[in-house]
Each structure stands twice: as structure tokens, then as C-alpha cells.
Design a protein around this nucleic acid. Sequence first.
RNA 1: GCCCCAAUGGCGCAGUGGAUAGCGCGUUUGGUUGCGGACCAAAAGGUCGGGAGUUCGAAUCUCUCUUGGGGCACCA
Length: 609
Amino acid sequence: MIREQLKSHITLAIQAAQAAGDLPSFEIPTFTVDHPRQANVADYAASIAMQLARVTRMPPPQIAQTIVKHLELGEVATAELVGAYINFRLSQKYLTEQVAVILEAGKAWGHINIGAGKPIQVEHGSANPTGPLTVASGRNVIIGDTLANALSAAGYAVHREWYVNDAGNQIRHFGESVYARYAQQLGRDEPFPDDGYKGDYINDIAKAIIAAEGDKYISLPRDDARRALGKIGIDAIMDGVRASLIRVSIHHDNFFSERSLYESGQFERVLPILRDKNLLIEYDDALWFSEDGSPIRKTEVRGLKPEDGQEKSEVRSQKSESKEQKTEAVQVVVIRSPKIIAEPSERPTYFASDIAYVWNKLVLRGFERAIYVWGEDHQGDVPRLMAVTKALGLDPKRVELLIYRFITLMRDGQEVRMGKRSGNIVTIDDVVDEVGSDATRFVLLSRSIDTKIVFDIDLVKKQSDENPVYYVQYAHARICSILRKAEETTDTRLGGADSHVATDLTTVAETLDHQAPLLEYQHPSELALIRKLLELEEVVELVSGQLQPHHLPAYAQSLATTFSAFYRDCHVLGEAPEVTASRLRLVRATQATLANTLALMGMSAPERM
RNA sequence: GCCCCAAUGGCGCAGUGGAUAGCGCGUUUGGUUGCGGACCAAAAGGUCGGGAGUUCGAAUCUCUCUUGGGGCACCA
């Protein structure tokens, strides 16, 4: 990447200056080369001279001058001093060459290799398998999938996983619900459980089971029937979820069963690690994890209100003693208890699963990093997962938890309230049916994960003409139109081959891709466009490094805008043959960049709209 | 009460310790005898919530206050 190149040039210049005695001896600190806030100032700028003022005891402008004196940039760029800033402007020659680089890379343009093939897991989705995929979970999977795309482009070996919560109380309620509907449809007078799932889809599942297997479960003992029907129901739900995911271009490498952590004995094998460190404590008939191994007191039980004033004041005085203590609240969580479920051996708590699961990810499967995409409702669970990761002797930096804020769905000017239990849900399918997958993905990606998104279905539909998603795709379609037109009017200017070869867009594109560069680009709008194309690598670095997918839509829009300026200023077809050919190559490179950006976001790049 | 997140033009949001804080929408005024007008240009619009601190330099880091959102079940 050009930014890295410039950095190493600066480093070399500093070392040369030191060797020549122009700068004193010191260790070069980490520094950055950035885009100036105002693009017309320079392409890149370094403020290293100001950083070095103290260590060199020289005035910053003089340091900058000294560095520039020793800078050898070749024909890549020119350096200019502005005060203590070293400003770089990429040369026309360099920029022109980059178009060939982009065309050569093609679909791989934008791929960088900071990941070096390291195995990394992105777990996303993982909604309870008790109902269809909701639009609320849509943000989860779309964030996760896009990050996985970006990490993959950044050179990591990415594994995409969905964690199926197929154990626990919710699953029991779900099984009971399916059983009740099943029995009711077979004419039994079966009461529907109070905690049951009331959605119509439960009826559909029951109906399908009856159609496929008849009434055979009715004669089984109730608990057995409940379990069996629950399992069938989960499979049915997950089949539906998978179908919904495909519609938004999301693929998981694995659907990991929570239950398998117990059935395989993994959980029982991990537990001794904590026991050996004396971090497991028996209290009140339950098994607890205590981060520092201290005994459990009632006041420490998460969420339990102190029962008398004395304990309460004890807690308060402890908290207010020092600020360090406040931030390091000890994590105390129950692992299993007969109060949660009568047979704790069958299935401990959700947190117990988390323990075995993180061990499974980092140790058994050897992912260097495990990224979790969680909704804000799980925000409170972050400290305990980090605590147990540490307790297992694993580097907590390997676990990265992304907490995104929920979306508010609006329809007919009103907020749509959702709840899986009540059956009042808006599925991702509903939204995709109305506004399409591309718009759904773009809208849900367009803001930082810390920002609540108001997804107004009517607005997204109504505004479609002015919607950024169409603006971006329009730019791509327009490019394709130019390439098509080039094919119609083609002659030898398209690169030596006989003029009848180009029969479709692909052929034109391939011809362009392998053509030798003809002219050096010099129009400001041409050069601005190339600079913008080069940013894709930086965006991939940014998104994968900071795990912030919202930079992608922003870049896509900015790229489309820059292309529009070029389109306005630089006519492509019908110019002098070399000009047309050069600009066609640039247009083609823009198409590749735009298409790759859209692909990272999981969106289509339409040739016509 | 404790924890997490946020506060940046009218609205919605970007912003990596660095130069004159950007983008979209909206508003105003313009632009087509051109490869797709689903387009483009110009203008107006900011004490970056308040205060203190660190730093050569703070929208960005620290502390504090204010306001808003979320989380604080032996639920998942």
C-alpha cells in the first residue's frame, strides 16, 4: 500500500539524515501517514517532524526540512513542506500505473495481506432457534457477514459460525409449545403453556409434523414427546433461518450446537481447569464461578437486591473506597443449579455453555481470534466472558465482542414492537420482500454499530430514488452502459484485436484489462478518481482492523460521487482514440473497484437498473 | 445505585492526537443541441453538550458535571 511505502521512505530518510549527522541519534517512534483533512492540500501528509521536536531539540519545520532533504521518492510522489508538515502528492506517472495494477488484480483488487492467513472466527446470528429470523437479528448477521468479508479480504482465514442455542429453558418452552399445538391439532384438549411461543409458525410446524409422521408422538411419555418435537421444531426453524440468510447473501461455515458441548463431554473437561484454580464454589445448592475465588455472599449475586440495610451499606462502602475497585467488580455467576432446572446434569446455565464454547473456539479449534457479534441486550454479559477467558488462562485480547445497538422498525409512521414469545415479529424476509436485500444490507451497514438505526420501511421504499444504495448501484450501471456502448462503437481503438471480437461486456472488459497503458492521466478528475480507487485498500484495512463495517457504505458513496465528477468532466467515448482507450481503462478499473466494494457489503452490482 | 454506549450545521450521521471539522438529506440559486438527469454545481448553515486537565497540538485522551439510550433474573 502506498501509505506504507511513504512511511518506509520517511523512515529511510530519517536514518539517512542521522547517518549524515543532520539529525541526532534516536529511536524512530511509531508515526502515521494520513490523508489531510482537506484533500486539496495533499494526497498524504506526515506530522512526524512535530513528534520529533522534543527528542531532537530542534524546531519542527527544520526537522521536516531535514527529512525532506534526505527523502528519495523516485517517481512515486513529490514532497512539499508546509510548516512542519511533510505533504506528499502522488505523481501522474504513479497514479497511471496504478490503473494497470487494479485491472491486473481484478476481483482481488482491495485484497491486502495483513491477516497472513491466520485463522479467525466471526460468530454472528446465533439467535434463539425458537422462531424465524427477525429483522432485529438482521443487523447482527449483516454486520457479522460484512466483517467476515472484510477480514477475508484482509488476508485472514475466516470461519463464519452460527451458535445454535439448542439447550436451556427457552428450548423447553419451545418444545412444550410445539407439543401443545401438535396435540391440539390432533384433537386433544391440551392447554397452551403460559411461557409458550404464541406465533402462528408453531402451528405450521405442528401441522408439518403431523403430515410427515402422524400422531405417533401423542402416545409417547409427555417429556419424551416434548423433547422430540422440540428437536424437530428447532430443525424446522433452522431450515427456515438458513433460507432467509441465503436471501441476504449470508453463508455460515458451521452451525454450532450448544447442546453438543454437553453431549460430547467438552463442558465436563473444561470445568476442572477452573476447579483446579479454586474458582468454582458451592453455595446454596448451586455451583458458581467466582472470578477471584472469593466465597459467595448474597450481596455479590448478580442482580440480587441486598435484603437488609447492613449488607447494602457494606456494598456501598466497598464500592466507594477506591475507583480501581469500582471498575474491577468481581464476576460471580452461577454455573448450574437445581433452581434453574431440576436436573442440572442435563443442562447447566447459558454461562456454563459460554465457558466451554470459548475454550472450544480458542483451544480445541485453535482460532487466533474469536469475534462475537452481540446485541446490546448482551452487553452485561461481556465482563463475565472476559473474566472466564482470563481464568481459563487464555489471552482475553483474542476475544472481541462487538455490541451493536438495536434497530427501531417503523411502518406507517409507527414503531413496530417485536417479541418472539408474543409471536409479534417482523422477519427479515418481510423486510427483504418490501425493500430488497441490497437496500436492507446497505441501510443496516451504513452507521456505526454504536448507533441506533431507525429503519423506516416506508421511507426506504419511498426514497428509493434518492437512496444512497441506488446512487451507488447507479454509478455501476452507468459504467456498464459506457462499456456496452464502447462495444457497439468499437473499432481498433479498443486494443489491436479485430473490431468484431467484442460481443459482450465481459469481452470488452477483458480486452481493456490486458491492454498496454497508452497515456498518462492528467485531468484533475481522472487523477482524483484514481486516488479514490486506491483508497479501497485503506478501507479494507480500516474495516478489518477496527471491526467497523460502516466505512464501506461511506466509501462506496464517496467513490460513486468521485466517479460522477469524472463522468461530468471527462468524456470517454468519441474522444481521440488514445484518450478514449485510456479512459475506458479507468472506467473499467472503477467498475472493478465499485463491484468489489459492493461485494464486500454483500450487495449486487447491477449492469442495468 | 452500579455498568456500557452516545451527545458534532435544521434533520440523520462520518471523523485515525495534527493544518481552515466533513458527508447525506433538507433549504436557496443555477445547470440538459453530450457516453444513463436515478445526475451535477454553487450558496447559506458549527462556541464539536458544559467545565477542568494532559499535550507543542484535543471533536478525538483523562477527570467531572448535564442530558438521552441500553443493561443490571439461580432468563436466554
